[in-house]
Design a protein around this nucleic acid. Sequence first.
DNA 1: GGGAGCGTTTCACCACGCGAAACGCTTAGG
DNA 2: CCTAAGCGTTTCGCGTGGTGAAACGCTCCC
Lengths: 252, 252
Amino acid sequence: MASEGTIRAIERTFRIAEFLGTHGPVGLSAIATGLELPKSTVYRHLRTLEGEGYVTDDEGNYALSLRFLDLGERARGRHSEYRLAAEKVGELADRTAERAQFTIEEHGRAVYVHQQMGANAVRADTYPGKRVPIHTSAAGLAILSHYPRRRIDAIVDRHGLEAMTPRSITDPETLHDRLQRTRERGYSINDQGVIEGLRAIGAPVIGSENTVIGGLSISGPINRIEGQRLDEELPSLLLGATNELELDITYQ
Amino acid sequence: MASEGTIRAIERTFRIAEFLGTHGPVGLSAIATGLELPKSTVYRHLRTLEGEGYVTDDEGNYALSLRFLDLGERARGRHSEYRLAAEKVGELADRTAERAQFTIEEHGRAVYVHQQMGANAVRADTYPGKRVPIHTSAAGLAILSHYPRRRIDAIVDRHGLEAMTPRSITDPETLHDRLQRTRERGYSINDQGVIEGLRAIGAPVIGSENTVIGGLSISGPINRIEGQRLDEELPSLLLGATNELELDITYQ
DNA sequence: GGGAGCGTTTCACCACGCGAAACGCTTAGG
DNA sequence: CCTAAGCGTTTCGCGTGGTGAAACGCTCCC
């Protein structure tokens, strides 16, 4: 029935949790109709989630509990590399006055792990834990550029090349061209592939045994990320920070 | 069997997730023995969690995925009050140079929602999503001080008065005394009730219709949180920030 | 005062989650 | 070099536990 040997009740419960995450505090019936599930089933799931402390019930308005934040922070703290990366993200944000982030690949998608706004950084709805198609983000491209071909193909097969803007990469040839150029110059460029008007550069963070830990990136508006700043100043800062981070990780 | 009408499979899955959260990346057998569950059962749960993207499998080493962080951040963003509180936490941390935090009550426990370290703040393993017994924290006492008696009693009945340090409050009489003093002076004091050597003051944040949203607090080492600073300077800053926050919330 | 909507409860059914056991595989040790 | 221990994975028959249609009581608003 389901994929294979997986537990349907758990899949449903996470669908309910995700529904609560996107639709905010909401009542039982809205969930049931939104997910096309019987009310009694949703009710039982919510009772269970509430009993476990993962959902709050404010007079029939169900919402996600902060226990998810607890687990999320534990997930973020699971590797010391992520903590070291947070410091470098802070430095980059301070020195460039733009937004800086550290991103990893998880299940074939790019996930923001740390993010910091510099003094002039533009607002954007990126937050830790947010996922984007890996081929659209600068850090994602940087990560992919160090993956073996078969692993890249597997990700493309699984997720396709979904566009987030008209300038997103959408065909495999362009992707591999961009990855090749990324390898050559050591950093990637995302030109308005995630958000229009926003440009970013990214660099892969290599750990021990030549594995990719994740990617550091700097992003800002196209009118500031251009010319000599785009070609020299920011890449130099980014690659410097990446290099320092790699040393931190090796000799922590 | 279980509480009543709840779904056992879901309870187990969260126990597995929590195990991964506290024990870091770990293998299947360790989970099975740690939770006293058959390997095949744990395996099925892990496969489901991995399929849903909530667990990562790095060559047999299972770990929590950052999807939990995604849900957690959504939980934190569910109320605009929490976002406004974040700004005030930042201001308090900057102006006092200590650690400031915004805390709410969830399922009878105090949960840190926002936290910021000031210039001189001491390190502590408090992070967003972390839960502590509500009667031990300054913000928790502040919140309780505005709850009706029956609601306080219900929480005490449910969770007891667990001590975190020898100076934690452990009997109901002392608790109600402290709450009464909190009401009188408008702010609470936690003298080394959570961590030895750490003192904190907290104030309740009152929303519309006289309901308590949460609590703001400032914490630091006992040698800096004392004398005139403890009695006047910090309470004044704290109550000022709380008042501003309440206005922000009302007229947002 | 009636009807629509809500969250909750009930109940019989049989799919589905369960766990003992067996299975390959890798690793370590004699 | 062979064995044994340990790992993650797979199998399979059992029976329970998750399921969903339906009914229930309640509040709110015509």
